[in-house]
Amino acid sequence: MYNSLDLFQTAAAMARHAGSRQAVVARNIAHADTPGYAAQHIPAFQDVYKDGEPNQMRATRAGHVRGGAQAATGAVLTTTNSEASPNGNTVSLEEELLNSVAVSREHNRALAIYKHGMTILRNSLGRS
């Protein structure tokens, strides 16, 4: 029942997006000493969501006509424009640690939205 609510779909998309971003941050940190490695990043969820059209039609059942992709599915992996070290590596550990904290906060925000949505549903059904 709760899977068809937009609030839960958005919270799930935020959590998946944060997981993808964390994987990219971890990959960057793992390649911090690899010569010639170019650091990569995925834009924040709000930036990806903002770029999508909020009033797009979308299919909510199998019989619906497809109106377009849902917002926040267009996350694109890009390379950073950081200054390269002498070996050509563009990973900055300080920047990656800050990105990791930002991603953790984004994931915690998604979980909080999901948790509060479930609390509202339970209270509306008379279960606390």
Rank of each mutant, 00 (worst) to 15 (best):
M1Y: 02
Y2T: 10
Y2V: 11
Y2M: 11
N3A: 14
S4I: 09
D6A: 09
D6I: 05
L7Y: 04
F8R: 14
Q9A: 12
Q9K: 15
A11L: 09
M14W: 03
A15I: 12
H17Y: 06
A18I: 02
A18H: 06
G19M: 05
S20G: 15
A23K: 15
V24F: 01
V25Y: 02
V25P: 04
A26V: 11
R27L: 04
N28P: 13
I29S: 06
A30M: 05
H31G: 05
H31F: 02
A32D: 09
D33R: 10
D33N: 12
P35N: 08
P35T: 05
G36A: 05
G36S: 06
Y37D: 11
A38Y: 01
A38Q: 14
A39W: 03
Q40H: 09
I42D: 02
P43I: 07
A44C: 02
A44V: 09
A44N: 05
F45A: 08
F45V: 07
Q46R: 13
Q46K: 12
Y49L: 15
Y49A: 14
Y49M: 15
G52H: 07
G52I: 02
E53G: 01
N55I: 04
Q56S: 13
M57W: 06
A59T: 04
T60V: 03
T60K: 01
R61S: 11
R61P: 01
G63L: 05
H64T: 06
H64I: 05
H64E: 12
V65Q: 04
R66S: 08
R66Y: 07
G67Q: 12
G67D: 12
G67N: 11
A69P: 00
Q70V: 05
A71T: 11
A72Q: 03
A72I: 03
T73W: 04
A75P: 07
V76P: 03
V76K: 09
L77D: 11
T79I: 04
T80G: 05
T80V: 04
T80L: 02
T80D: 07
N81G: 12
N81E: 08
S82R: 10
S82E: 06
E83A: 09
E83G: 03
A84L: 08
A84K: 14
S85T: 13
S85F: 03
P86A: 15
P86S: 14
N87P: 01
N89E: 13
V91H: 02
S92K: 07
S92Q: 12
E94H: 00
E95N: 08
E95I: 08
E96N: 13
E96I: 07
L97F: 04
S100Q: 15
S100A: 15
A102H: 14
A102R: 14
V103C: 03
V103D: 01
S104T: 10
R105E: 15
R105V: 14
E106M: 09
E106V: 04
H107I: 00
H107W: 07
R109S: 13
A110E: 05
A112Y: 06
A112W: 05
A112L: 14
A112C: 07
K115D: 12
K115N: 14
K115A: 14
H116I: 07
H116T: 13
M118Q: 11
T119I: 11
T119C: 02
I120S: 04
L121N: 03
L121M: 08
L121C: 00
R122F: 01
R122E: 09
N123C: 01
N123G: 05
S124E: 10
S124K: 09
L125M: 13
G126C: 06
R127P: 02
R127W: 07
S128V: 10
